[in-house]
Design a protein around this nucleic acid. Structure first.
Length: 935
DNA sequence: GACATCACG
DNA sequence: GACGTACGTGATGTCC
């Protein structure tokens, strides 16, 4: 039937159905794997009831469910804050969205969406078309944004209240008829969608004004005639904003559609399809009810044992076969490779692992790739294995036969690895992604079992493959040492015989796939899906790009400094030997201790464990007030540290090809969510002393560029003020006050105007102490004051800020009750030692107090880093380094201001919209030719 | 490879 | 009443 007179088109607002279903029903998960499905069930039930309802004269002849698609629409181009105040979707709702589309299709109801348009615009367009064709329209929604469409054969229907809304219904709601609804909305604004409107004008006033003046244009043109001075001024001052608001609320009824009204004709569902879907979702009573309506038998849904029983229990891997190293395939020709690729493509996911000649992704060469498609079903693709060549000059270095040519293999793999519909699964995917990026392959989309484990089990154990396999699969993978050897006899992987390599490499892919099957459903159950999807996984490509970019380090600068340090050290060493009266190794704490405490007889104690004297900087500093020798040793140590760890070692890390230093960030290394930087560690480059800071002069920008540093000011104290809810501190941050001086003033009763540096320094130490889980002993040692005095400070601090003690007690209690603490963003940090006895209890307690603060700060900068590349896309700038609360960029000289503005906005807004901080985040920026100047 | 030391946030 | 303490990292050199 062609759409026309006598037809009635029903348009269901899909999002409204989903959100109603989600909020109306308690959380429900699918038994077999823990997938959240409550909203899907509610959605299906609402569709069932809607289709089953007798709509009388308004019975549908055509029906569609309309969804939003894409988060960016023309409204965002008009106004970048449009819907900016929306909370992120709840994490257990997100995976259900695609399922509601499948549900709609299972009901055989047309399911429509258009990229970049809101459902409301599509509804407006279809309503117009239907009206023009002479038919009638029922919009199934109670959203006021759709009320502008009512009238002239179009009504709305509130499915929850079973109530029809016509022109009079709209008038009831807005005080105007539908044709003036947008005018009211333009004036009143909308806090839900963040439409600004005119300040101080609500729906009532707007309707009043419009009824007086007739239309919005008229009203704005004649605003001067308004009697109330406040309203008059507002309308004149905010004219632009009001007109913008109108463009935001006005629906676009000319959305391009790739279907016609005729495509929406109502269809009966296919019982097998619909019941099959409901069975897959494991909706028992709903499928019984629907089967009854359809006059068929409901399928039996097996009672599967909850996966929770299997999850986490070592050895239990559902239906997976045991590990068998002899069962793995070796891919020797292109045809075989194509078969594996087809298999991966068919099922939509594949585990992946690369083998290379070394651990450094910047220099390592690809040797082979392994794939796994099911537990126990894995293959190794050797690409660059060479003869072992111990002594045999003729075979040495020759490529072994029967290997697929590297270029052919990569050309075959590239479409698979870049296919948006095939999920690639890896363990530490950043490594593989970097190797493959050098081969011109951009792996996406992917999952990473290491990061899944980090989100699930952070704090419980490490997240390396061997640990995870032993713990969760009860299987000890072949140690790499058994394949490549160790020490002098160690070889690179390309020298490993292909048979041995196959057993080892395919096993890694197999282990990865099995871990993924285990972890994937657990993410939802542990409610860490959002953590994983927003703060772990998307960081992988961001960090990979930063690491590949590297930072330019000037070898000559380092080399000159190194020489100067050598001379200084030699002089100091001579001086020290003279003072000691004998020569000894100044770098040996053991020998130094014997000189100081045995030969010279100074005061100082032994440390229990090894019986050696402690000669740390704090002890030497105490001794240095009386004696020359420890003072010179301190000088020597500082120089020695700078030379060995920085000026010398750093030069070794300059990449031959790029002339830059490429660090490697571990995403899952630190318990709190912080990153860690290795080989070299670029997060501990000196800055605190003048001498050390000069090392940073060697970190430079390319010609025509500068380094730009942006760092969060006092981020951890701000988070503390927020989580502990300390109003005085929060207000001080809002007012931009000196927080340490403010603390000192509050504690010691000193007016801010009379603050001395010494009092401020003490308050600063206390503030830091609080973040670390303060103890009288620790503060006493840090401030070098008697323990009783330190305890007095702490007591006074808690007296003044009782909320902080409450926060600490609550955090420790939470840790004891749950075995973990959480950051503001839901990252879980497990605290297995919290019930320990003895000194370990104290450590665990302090770590538990610190973790949510340090971890929330880490989450915030992670979020900023994930949002940074799209934000600065197109600018002549790249992000190079992260140092916990600082991001370092290399930027074209003329783009510094633009970069700073954009990056600052991203960083300061990084908590939004998941967490509304009660304190502002403040970012300080600097720029210069080198890191010392930028910081 | 454990330990002490010290660089950073 | 005694534990023995600031939180989180990584790299280096010594010594066993």
């Amino acid at each position: 039937m062609s759409f026309g007179k006598g037809c009635n088109l029903h348009l269901i607002d899909g999002s409204a159905f989903i959100f109603r279903a989600f909020h109306a029903l308690p959380p429900l998960t699918r038994k077999s794997d823990g997938l959240p499905v409550g909203a899907v069930q509610g959605f299906c039930d609402m569709l069932r009831r809607y289709v089953g309802t007798d709509h009388g004269d308004f019975a549908p002849t055509h029906l569609a469910v309309i969804f939003d698609k894409g988060s960016h629409t023309f409204r965002n181009d008009l106004y970048d804050l449009y819907k900016a105040n929306r909370d992120e979707m709840p994490e257990d709702l997100r995976p259900q969205i695609p399922l509601t589309r499948r549900a709609t299709e299972a009901f055989n109801i047309a399911c429509k969406e258009v990229e970049g348009f809101e459902a409301d615009d599509i509804i407006a367009t279809l309503a117009r078309q239907a009206r023009e064709a002479g038919g009638e329209v029922t919009i199934v929604s109670s959203d006021k944004d759709l009320m502008q469409l009512v009238g002239d054969g179009v009504v709305m229907f509130d499915a929850m209240k079973n109530r029809r809304i016509d022109r009079d219904g709209v008038f009831e709601k807005f005080g105007v008829y539908p044709e003036r609804v947008v005018d009211v909305q333009a004036l009143a604004g909308d806090s839900v969608d963040n439409v600004p409107g005119a300040p101080g004008i609500g729906v009532k006033t707007a309707a009043l004004l419009l009824n007086e003046f007739g239309s919005l244009d008229e009203l704005l043109d004649r605003a001067g005639e308004i009697k109330q001075p406040k309203r008059r001024e507002t309308l004149i001052a905010y004219r632009d904003q009001i007109e913008l608001s109108k463009r935001l609320v006005l629906l676009d009824d000319r959305t391009p559609l790739d279907f016609t009204l005729d495509d929406l004709e109502i269809r009966d569902p296919d019982p097998d399809t619909l019941l099959g879907f409901l069975a897959e979702m494991e909706f028992r009573s709903l499928s019984r009810r629907i089967a009854e309506t359809l006059g068929t038998e409901a399928p039996t849904i097996p009672e599967t044992a909850p996966a929770a029983a299997a999850a986490g229990a070592p050895g239990s891997t559902e239906d997976a076969p045991p590990f068998d190293g002899t069962a793995y395939a070796c891919i020797r020709d292109l045809a075989t490779l194509e078969r594996w690729i087809a298999e991966a493509r068919d099922q939509g996911f594949v585990a992946l692992d690369t083998e290379t000649t070394g651990l450094n992704e910047m220099t390592a060469e690809l040797v082979g790739v392994s794939l796994a498609t099911a537990p126990g079903r894995a293959a190794y693709l050797p690409l660059a294995h060479r003869a072992a060549g111990d002594g045999d000059l003729f075979d040495d270095g020759a490529l072994l036969p029967d290997q697929v040519a590297r270029e052919d293999a990569l050309a075959a793999l590239k479409p698979l690895l870049e296919d948006r519909s095939v999920l690639k699964i890896g363990q530490n995917m950043k490594y593989d992604a970097k190797i493959l990026a050098r081969c011109g392959i951009d792996v996406a989309p992917f999952d990473d079992t290491m990061l899944m484990s980090y989100a699930l089990h952070g704090g419980e154990h490490g997240h390396g493959m061997d640990t995870l396999s032993e713990r969760y699969l009860a299987h000890r993978p072949i140690p790499i040492k058994e394949v490549i050897g160790s020490g002098k006899t160690q070889v690179t992987f390309d020298r490993v015989p292909i048979d041995a390599a196959t057993t080892y490499a395919a096993e890694d892919a197999d282990v990865t796939l099995r871990l993924w099957r285990l972890f994937r459903p657990q993410l939802h159950r542990a409610q860490v899906t959002r953590v994983y999807e927003t703060m772990e996984r998307p960081l992988v490509p961001v960090l990979a790009d930063m690491e590949r970019a590297g930072i330019k380090v000037d070898r000559d600068t380092l080399s000159r400094m190194s020489n100067a340090f050598s001379q200084k050290m030699a002089a100091l060493e001579a001086e020290i030997h003279a003072l000691a009266g004998e020569t000894f190794n100044v770098g040996s704490p053991k020998q130094l201790g014997e000189i100081l405490f045995d030969r010279m007889g100074l005061d100082g104690g032994k440390k229990g464990k090894t019986g050696a004297y402690a000669t740390g900087a704090d002890i030497l500093e105490d001794l240095a007030t009386e004696h020359e020798l420890p003072a010179r040793v301190l000088d020597w140590r500082q120089i020695s540290k700078l030379k060995s760890t920085y000026t010398d070692a750093l030069q070794e890390h300059i990449n031959r090809e790029t002339g830059r230093v490429h660090t490697c960030y571990s995403i899952a290394g630190a318990n709190t969510g912080r990153l860690a930087s290795t080989e070299p560690n670029l997060q501990n480059i000196p800055v605190r002393t003048e001498e050390g800071r000069r090392i940073r002069e060697a970190f430079v920008a390319e010609p025509g560029r500068v380094l730009v540093s942006l760092d969060y000011s006092q981020i951890e104290l701000r988070i503390l003020a927020h989580v502990a809810g300390i109003e005085t501190l929060k207000q001080a941050f809002r007012d931009g006050q000196d927080i340490h001086a403010m603390t000192a003033s509050e504690m010691f009763g000193v007016p801010m105007a009379e603050m001395t540096p010494e009092i401020r320094r003490q308050a600063k130490a206390i503030n830091f102490g609080v973040i670390y889980g303060i103890s009288g002993f620790g503060l006493a040692r840090n401030l070098r004051i008697p323990r009783g005095d330190a305890q007095g400070f702490i007591d006074r601090y808690f007296e003044r800020f009782p909320g902080i003690r409450d926060y600490m007690d609550a955090t420790v209690a939470f840790a004891k009750a749950h075995g973990r603490v959480e950051t503001l963003f839901g990252r879980r940090i497990h605290t297995p030692e919290i019930d320990a006895k003895g000194p370990r209890a104290g450590f665990a307690r302090r770590a538990a107090i610190n973790a949510p603060i340090q971890g929330s700060a880490a989450d915030i900068i992670r979020r900023a880093m994930v949002r940074m590349p799209p934000a600065i896309d197109g600018m002549p700038a790249r992000m190079l380094l992260q140092v916990h609360d600082e991001l370092l960029f290399e930027v074209a000289e003329d783009a510094v201001d633009a970069l700073v503005a954009t990056a600052r906005e991203v960083m300061e807004g990084a908590a939004d919209p998941v967490v509304r901080l009660d304190v502002p985040l403040v970012v300080e920026a600097g720029a210069g030719p080198n890191w010392a100047a930028a910081h």
